[in-house]
Design a protein around this nucleic acid. Sequence first.
DNA 1: ACAGAATATGTCGGCTCTGACATATTACGG
DNA 2: CCGTAATATGTCAGAGCCGACATATTCTGT
Lengths: 95, 95
Amino acid sequence: MKKLKNGWVEGSVQDFLDLSNADVEYIEIRLTLSHLLKERRQKRHLTQVQVATRLHTSQSRVAKMEKGDPTVSVDLLLQSLFRLGVKRKELASAI
Amino acid sequence: MKKLKNGWVEGSVQDFLDLSNADVEYIEIRLTLSHLLKERRQKRHLTQVQVATRLHTSQSRVAKMEKGDPTVSVDLLLQSLFRLGVKRKELASAI
DNA sequence: ACAGAATATGTCGGCTCTGACATATTACGG
DNA sequence: CCGTAATATGTCAGAGCCGACATATTCTGT
């Protein structure tokens, strides 16, 4: 929040852009995790039902996770990925 | 979920361990993000109140974010980090 | 030692996410 | 084609997260 000489506060515009960008980045990361989950499942030749059982959840929620449905949190995605054996390194390189 | 010859299903123990590990990894990543947030704020010489204003939230929630309080979601942490200008690369290297 | 600033902790009503279930749509072997 | 497995979509009650506020604790300069 640096100040400028002309009285404007740098960042009023910049922050606006940052906010938009922030939202975009957040959504992108959600989708990245979603795709990683789907990819992981398919590589292992598992059905959504099988994964759902492993994760103690339902097939419909797995479908929503893989689709990046807005009712799915990053928390759920991360926990699911870890439970499917994804490691932090893989996560980092996917991000 | 590979099968073994002796009838045991490999993974009953392995999965148990994986679940524990998954939980640990999930918690660790939460803490990593928490610390990143705090670090970011301090490097910029901002108070929690100032950050709270920027994020359109309250000081108490910022405090909880930085402490890794269990009522704080990874979603909120990520959105906050992005709004404070953290980029995906930085995130990736922090993870 | 004190005052004020900064940070931490507790609580709560409202809103969001969750697993579960029902049902619809799509994919695929025969 | 047709049956069936796989995936997708809609809905809901309960659980968990949210911002906000009050209050407590810790930190800092004097």
